[in-house]
Each structure stands twice: as structure tokens, then as C-alpha cells.
Design a protein around this nucleic acid. Structure first.
Lengths: 365, 365
DNA sequence: TCGGAAAATGGAAACGGTTCCAACTATTAT
DNA sequence: ATAATAGTTGGAACCGTTTCCATTTTCCGA
């Protein structure tokens, strides 16, 4: 591999001159510049990024620490980040986190070992013991989708999930539902995800405001996932006094709820209203009513914010709040009149052992 | 930031000794090692990755060039790669490609500018003009999911999509379908994706073998995506002599087909059989019959292969072929009886004298 | 006690850029 | 003609490691 020295020699100029040509410095005469460019092309020379990094003291890299990066909501955020970085000079390196151990390793390694000029952390809300690493970090940090009271000290892009939870529940209440279930991740889990918790708060607030009792058996928690949500939905829907509407903390979980309704022979939205959260691409396909959050934009803004922070660190931490929006589609409707004095209703003997194949049980027109 | 020199001074030893301690060299006495470790911890020293990279001449980074990395099939492959690299010392940097221009930029930049110790290229089959970059690359390259005759010279992990296309079509033929549509990406598009093309070949081979005519109006091509597949499916299904079964080149496209069937009032699988490709997580939810390919494993094997190739370059390029598997679920069934004599035998028997070029190379068994 | 092998150690050189300062060359004003 | 100035240029020093070689220390057996 030719080095800058070879180029200098071949062009008959000094090291500094070649460097200046490489960096588009105006302090080179045209004739010299041409000679150098000719030598570069003759030697098929490309500068060493690593040497450049050492000399400049910058890595020209942004690191992203992200849990479960195959989840559609997460890839959307990543896409926003990638798009932004692609038009900058930064490379993007990704640390996928699927265990607590790896989360801790990544925080330590990435933030400390000058692997990047900045870090974006997605959805992993720091615990108190993580704060020392993050408050005066060796490199700038931006959190995306991490919400926590003590985080006022950190740069971040967040969504008001409490408001989103309110909007979802409010929509169901306005349709006339009085028995509203909530299906979510475990509210307490080791990754300290806040979305299920915050949406739960919104849910509780609206129940309270509407004078509806909170019933703990209407709250199904479990690991994130369609299948787990399916199982929780079956539990809720086979209660003697089952909900007429279910708010799922994500579209993925809403799919599990829809599947449960299907297998139990319930028509959506006639027998059961379902609302999700995220507005994934699939939501439109399913005609799922949902709360839209601007996933891609959250990544984009996070990356833009990080680049700003790298260029000149703000005195005060910056917090940007993105809006949510209710998207009404075909899976929510007023409850059936007869459902209002339920308690005696007997469910049709739908067999769970023998689930129907795909049936288009909810039509959207 | 303290450097190795500060540590050496503080510990009262030489530079080399500190370096040896850092690299677990056995050539350090226990007492010295303890002194050095103490100094390291006193100074809160962490070695500079960048300097290490320059000195070693390695970047400890693997680059992945990948088109449309939010597509579920792609994220699964990425997950396989990430998992493998996480347990190695390599960092993972990602270059997402959504335009032809960016594809070309990435190939040039990443392969030439010593940004990584190795590159994995997903699904982007090189064109002839790309070959010079790839055949004796400056850094090792592994292709994943890139198929092309002239690629015998490159390391790669592939799926036999022609066989997958055959398996899908064969399944429909065995169920008794005689009117089988195919919905795919454009067979010719600028990214040079081969999957739709190869599956198409398999489709044609089985039609030929079964003595069924190929009807170009049964082939719907368009940009990748559910919506586009929906529109193509509507076209096929509103033909006067519409197919009784549709093979979609991906599960995403199969979803568009299912949606079209729903909107047209067709029951699946009674009125229309649908088979997809990939076996995404969503396929199970939809009870979609499909061809499973080992997406995550393809990434994993790609990464493992790349690491091997970096460690000692093979004399001959290595090609690993992953299997596909038919997964029968609820969207395929025999055609309705009355469908069997539609069009009242207007088709001429397949001409054996005039076989299509496609069939020549294929033999069962 | 001593010689020699083995173990431990120090530090110069190298990795390949950037930057800064000194020096050199035109150009212009007096 | 000369001094001042602006425009170019060369290259030493530096970024923070690793590696290798020369040197010193330790250990062992004779």
C-alpha cells in the first residue's frame, strides 16, 4: 500500500503539500496540485483512515447501542439514524443488545474506549448506577426513546408515551367502552424499558378521569412478543366479565390480540375493539387502529442532535419531544349494546386446540 | 486522557512492559504486572483503540453493505451477523443502500479505504464492472445471498432459490393447480437482486415439467413491497381466466396477495391458494404456506466464513449453499372442483420438441 | 563462586497521517 | 533597486500504540 510519503516522492513535493491537496487546502498552487493528483492516481493511492483518525483524534464514527434491533419499531429508528449519517462523514457502528450482560458491556466499552465520537442509545433507559457514565461522558451521548425523571440531565429525543397511552384509552372511552384491557410487556423488566410503563400510566389516568375502575385482571403483562400477547389476550377474553376493548402497548402485541380474538370466534371490531401503538407498516395491512409515533424521525433527530452536540456541546442538555397521533382504522368501534349488561353471556365454544386457518373475520371495506 | 507513557512513568517501568501487561504477555514478572495494573487503575487509563489499530494495521471492524436494511428478511440476516461478531473482537459497521448511487459509493469506499478488515455484502449481486473490485480485493469479501454464474470466483453463502421456486410451484402443482400465477419484484432492476429471478426460473421449470403452459399475464412484476404486490394480485385475479394459486416471491408480497383476495371476496385457500417465500415471523401469524430459508443462519455463516477468510485466505473461493424447506400452513389447498375444467381445455399440450432454455439444465433428484 | 541460559525489561522505530513553523519564492509598493 | 508582503512549500514533531532488539537481571548447575 502506497503512503503519503510515496506520493510526495513521486510528485517531487513535500509531505505537507500532499496532505494539503488531500484536504482541499487553498494553500497549494494549481500546478503543484495537478502534479500531486497525478501521482495519487498513478500510485492508486488511498489515504489510511486509521492514521487519519489517530492524527486528528477523531474516529469519524457514531455508535448506536440498541436492544433487539430486529423489531420493526427499532429498525425504523435505525433507518432514521442511518439516513442522517449517510449524508455526513460519520460511519455507523451498531451494538445489538439482547441480554443484560451485553447491555452493561456495551455501555462500558463503547462510551469509554474511544470507539466513537458519539453514542446514541435507543430505548435503554439508564438506571441510577449508569448515570455516572452518562452525565459527564468522555464522548457525547444522546438517548432516543428513553424516559426517566432523572434524565433531565441528558440529551435526548423522546415521545410522550403517557400522552399516547391517554390518547389510545380516550379513544376507546369515547366509543363507549367501559371494560378496557391493557396488554403490555412486563412493567418491570431488566432492560428498564419505559414505553409499556408510560402507556400504562396514560391508561390509568384516563380510566380515572372517566370514572372507570382499574381492574388488575384486565392488565396482561408478559415478555414482549406477539405470541405472549396472544396468551395474555386469551386470558383476558375468557374472564367471566371480559373486556370489550383492548389497548395493546405495541402493534406487534395487538397482532397477538387479534389472533386471540379470531381463535375465540370474536368479531373485531363488533365483539372486541383493539388498538395498538407505533403504526408499523403492518398496521395498515391489518386495518389496525393505533397510535402513530414518528419512529424514523426519532432516529433522524437523534442523529442530528448528536452531530450538533459533537460540534458544540450545549450548556444545558437538550430534550426534544416528538408528538403522537391517533390513527383510526377498522379495529375499533362502539361496543355491542348487549355487552353493556354482560355477565351472563356464554362464549361460543371456539376450540383453541383447533384454531382456524386465516379467516378474514374483520372486513374494512 | 492518560497514555501508556503516563502509566509507564507512574509504575516506574518502561513502555514495552506496560504494553506487555495490556496484551497479557507472559514475559512480565508478577510483581511488575501488579505495579502496572495498579497504575492503570489509579490513572483510570484505557488504551486508545485508534492507536492500536494503526500500530497493528488492523481495524478490528467488519463492514456490511446491505440494501434496504429495514426489510424483515434483511434484519434477520443482519442479526445472524451481529450475533457472530458480538462474540468476536470485531465491531460491526453498517452501510445501508437504498439507491444505486449509494451502492456504488459504498463498494468503492468500503472496500478500498481500509475502513474494515473484511466486508460482507448482502443481496447485491455484483455486475461485471464490479468484479475487478471484488476478485482480488484489498480486504476479504464475502457475499451473502448473491447468486451469479460468474461469482464462482468469490466467497459466498447462498440459498438455492431456483430449488426454492421449484418447491413452491411443485407444492401447488401437487395440490392439483393448473393455473398458477407468480408475483415478484421486477426481474430486471438496478440492484441486480437475483432472488426473484431465480425463483422465477424454478417456477418455469416446474410448469414445464408438469406440462403446464407459461402465461406471461400470470406473472406480475413490480417494485418490491406489499402494496405493489397487492396491485399486481388484483390484476391477476381479475383476469377472465384468473389463477387458482399464486406463488409470491416473498412473504411480504404474499401479504399483498392475501389482502387482494380479501378485498375481492375470495376465500383463502378455498378460492385461491397462496404461497410465500422466506418464512418470516409474520408468516406463522398469517398461517401462510411458504418456503423457509435460513435467514439468520445465512448471516451467521457469512460472518463466520469472513472471519475464517481473514485469518487464513483460502486457495479456492468457498461457497456454502443453505437449504430451503417447504412449510405447509393454511393458505394452500386443492383448487375447487369446478375450477378444474375452466377454460375448457384450450391449452395446447406442452411442446417437448421446443423446450425452453430454462428447462435444459434442470434434472430432478 | 561463577558461567551461561532463561526471564524480564527499556526504549527506539514504525504505523501513516496532520499541523505548525520556518524558509523560500514571487509580487508589489516605494 | 529594495523592502515588505503574500503565497507556497518542506519537513520535524506529534498522535498512542506494538514490536523488536539490545540489555539487564535472575536462576540454576557445576
Amino acid at each position: 500500500m502506497p503512503t503519503i510519503r510515496d506520493v510526495a516522492e513521486k510528485a517531487g513535493v513535500g509531505l505537507g503539500t500532499v496532505s494539503r491537496v488531500l484536504n482541499d487546502s487553498p494553500l497549494v498552487s494549481d500546478t503543484t496540485r495537478r502534479r500531486v493528483l497525478q501521482a495519487i492516481s498513478d500510485l492508486n493511492y488511498t489515504p489510511s483512515l486509521t492514521a487519519r483518525r489517530l492524527s486528528l483524534g477523531k474516529t469519524m464514527t457514531i455508535a448506536v447501542i440498541v436492544p433487539f434491533f430486529t423489531r420493526p419499531s427499532v429498525t425504523e429508528r435505525l433507518r432514521g439514524i442511518e439516513n442522517t449519517l449517510a449524508s455526513s462523514d460519520y460511519d455507523l457502528t451498531i451494538y445489538n443488545v439482547e441480554t443484560v450482560k451485553r447491555r452493561d458491556e456495551c455501555l462500558q466499552h463503547v462510551i469509554r474506549h474511544e470507539r466513537a465520537d458519539g453514542v446514541i442509545i435507543i430505548s435503554l433507559s439508564p438506571r441510577d448506577e449508569d448515570l455516572p457514565l452518562l452525565v459527564n461522558p468522555e464522548i457525547p451521548v444522546v438517548l432516543v426513546d428513553a424516559n426517566h425523571a432523572s434524565l433531565a440531565v441528558l440529551n435526548r429525543v423522546v415521545v410522550d408515551d403517557v400522552a399516547g397511552g391517554r390518547a389510545a384509552t380516550q379513544h376507546l372511552v369515547e366509543l363507549g367502552h367501559q371494560h378496557i384491557g391493557y396488554i403490555s410487556d412486563y412493567l418491570e423488566e431488566p432492560f428498564n424499558f419505559t414505553s409499556s410503563r408510560d402507556r400504562y400510566l396514560g391508561y390509568r389516568q384516563i380510566l380515572e378521569a372517566a370514572g372507570l375502575p382499574f381492574r388488575s385482571e384486565y392488565h396482561g403483562q408478559g415478555p414482549h412478543g406477539r405470541q405472549e400477547a396472544y396468551e395474555n389476550a386469551v386470558k383476558l377474553l375468557t374472564l367471566p366479565d371480559s373486556p370489550t376493548a383492548i389497548f395493546a402497548a405495541s402493534d406487534t402485541q395487538a397482532m397477538g390480540v387479534l389472533q386471540a380474538a379470531r381463535d375465540l370466534g370474536l368479531q373485531v371490531p363488533e365483539d372486541l375493539s383493539v388498538i395498538g401503538y407505533d403504526d408499523l407498516e403492518i398496521a395498515e395491512y391489518l386495518s389496525l387502529t393505533t397510535i402513530r409515533q414518528l419512529l424514523c424521525l426519532s432516529g433522524q433527530r437523534g442523529a442530528e442532535l448528536l452531530i450538533e452536540v459533537i460540534q458544540d456541546p450545549p450548556k444545558e442538555p437538550i430534550c426534544e419531544v416528538l408528538p403522537t397521533e391517533l390513527v383510526v382504522r377498522g379495529t375499533t368501534a362502539p361496543p355491542k349494546p348487549e355487552d353493556e349488561n354482560r355477565g351472563s353471556a356464554v362464549y361460543p365454544p371456539a376450540s383453541l386446540d383447533n384454531p382456524s386457518p386465516i379467516s378474514q373475520s374483520w372486513h374494512t371495506g
